[in-house]
Simulated scan of single mutants.
Amino acid sequence: MSSKEILLIYDRDCPACHYYCQIVRIRDSVGTLVLIDARENNAVMKEVTDLGLDIDQGMVLKMHDQFYYGADAIHALSLLSSRSGVFNRFNFWLFRSKKLASVLYPVLRSCRNLLLKILRKTKVNNLDLPNNDHF
Rank of each mutant, 00 (worst) to 15 (best):
S2K: 12
S3R: 09
S3Q: 13
E5A: 05
I6H: 01
I6E: 00
L8D: 03
I9G: 13
Y10H: 14
D11W: 07
D11T: 09
P15E: 01
A16Q: 03
A16W: 00
C17K: 08
C17N: 04
C17V: 09
C21G: 05
C21F: 02
Q22S: 13
I23G: 03
V24F: 12
V24K: 08
V24N: 06
R25A: 11
R25V: 03
I26R: 08
I26C: 14
I26E: 11
R27K: 15
D28T: 06
D28C: 10
V30N: 06
V30T: 04
G31H: 03
T32R: 13
L33W: 04
V34Y: 01
L35E: 01
I36F: 09
I36M: 02
D37L: 07
R39P: 05
R39T: 08
V44D: 02
T49I: 08
D50P: 03
L51A: 14
G52D: 04
G52P: 14
D54N: 13
I55Y: 06
D56W: 05
D56P: 05
Q57N: 13
Q57E: 15
G58N: 04
M59E: 00
M59D: 09
V60P: 05
L61R: 00
D65Q: 15
D65C: 13
D65L: 12
Q66S: 09
Y68S: 05
G70E: 02
G70N: 02
A71M: 01
A71G: 10
H75T: 05
H75N: 14
L77W: 03
L80S: 10
S82P: 02
G85I: 01
G85F: 07
V86G: 01
N88G: 06
K98F: 06
K98W: 04
K99I: 07
S102E: 07
S102T: 11
V103R: 11
L104I: 04
Y105K: 01
V107Y: 07
S110Q: 06
C111T: 14
C111K: 02
C111Y: 12
L116M: 14
I118R: 13
L119S: 12
T122H: 12
T122S: 15
T122V: 11
K123A: 14
K123Q: 15
L129D: 15
L129A: 14
N131Y: 09
N131D: 14
N132C: 15
N132R: 10
D133Q: 12
F135P: 01
